[in-house]
Amino acid sequence: MIRSLADVPAGSRAVVVEVAGGRGAKRRLLEMGLSPGSRVEVIVNGFPGPVVVKVRGVMAALGRGLAAKVLVKLEEGEREAQHGV
């Protein structure tokens, strides 16, 4: 199931499928390592705070607007994970 990174509950892992958004924002996200195929682990995700992820060995905070632009696929075994922090 494909959803935006903003909707991935904390503690889940996912794989980046696509990054949407304007050229500048997209490029920044891609070059921070959120490129299609990269595995991300969501560390913190609580509205209205930022989404904190670990990707390519680095932890990063994304505003909710940016996180919504990253489309991901949850990894197997992560589907039953509950919403919320």
Binding site: P50, M59, A60, L66
Partner: peptide
């Protein structure tokens, strides 16, 4: 500005 910031340990 959009937030996109690296969080080092």
């Amino acid at each position: 500005p959009e937030l996109l910031i690296e969080l080092p340990p």
